[in-house]
């Protein structure tokens, strides 16, 4: 599903990734763990096409994303990848339903189809009653579940999450973690999650531990 070869990335003089290679299979849930500054988020961003490596190659579902231009990347991101961030990053002017619809609107899905799909997802995530609420009217867990729904609306192959539970209490975090596994089972997505959360790491199919720009552990 994902194949990364000899990935290198520098910010000014600081080497963040020093030749990363890894493979992730379809429907796998992989946690990337490690200390702050180890390069976890940078790796995730490069895999998510939000950032570009200085050298090395990334294939997602066989597509060489390191060779794509801005517009190709944008539509690839829109259709194949779903993001969940630490801060939910919902747009404050839009309701939960509208926020979920945005990636579908970008994809130019028919409005009615998009809304129907968004409603299904929100219902599935237990947010049926909160659809017309604005993000500020939702709790932290609810906000993050709306963000999950937004990540899923275009049926992506891959969901990338950057410390998704970093901002939630332990109870809500646990619920979110279980949700990821439920989603994998129900929708067959591949998950790559950057996390500090030990519980989540434990639950994952595989942990990739990074330190100082290198992978130091890659085990089940």
């Amino acid at each position: 599903m994902i194949k990364v070869e000899n990935l290198q990335k520098k910010y000014d003089h600081l080497e963040v990734l020093k030749g990363i290679s890894l493979e992730i299979k379809e429907r796998e849930i992989v946690s990337i763990i490690g200390k702050s500054g180890a390069g976890k988020s940078t790796l995730l961003h490069i895999m998510g096409t939000l950032d570009q490596a200085d050298s090395g190659s990334v294939y997602i579902d066989g597509n060489p994303i390191h060779k794509m231009n801005d517009n190709q990347l944008a539509s690839f991101r829109n259709e194949k990848i779903g993001f969940i961030f630490q801060f939910h990053h919902l747009l404050p002017e839009f309701t939960a339903l509208e926020n979920v619809c945005i990636p579908a609107f970008i994809k130019k899905t028919k409005t009615s189809t998009a809304i129907e799909k968004a409603k299904e997802l929100l219902d599935y995530l237990g947010l049926k009653e909160r659809m017309e609420h604005k993000p500020t009217q939702l709790s932290g867990g609810e906000q993050q579940r709306v963000a999950v729904a937004r990540a899923l609306i275009n049926n992506p192959l891959l969901v990338l999450a950057d410390e998704p539970s970093g901002n939630l209490d332990s109870q809500t975090s646990e619920e979110l973690h279980h949700l990821f596994f439920k989603l994998r089972n129900d929708f067959h997505q591949t998950f790559v999650i950057v996390t500090h959360n030990q519980e989540l790491a434990q639950m994952s199919d595989r942990n990739i531990k990074m330190s100082d720009g290198h992978i130091i552990e890659n085990e089940k």
Partner: peptide, 16 residues
């Protein structure tokens, strides 16, 4: 900036 970043992450093109 924040909204622009999110829309980019969600796959909106620059021109959009």
């Amino acid at each position: 900036t924040n909204m622009i970043g999110i829309l980019k992450a969600l796959g909106a093109t620059h021109w959009t």
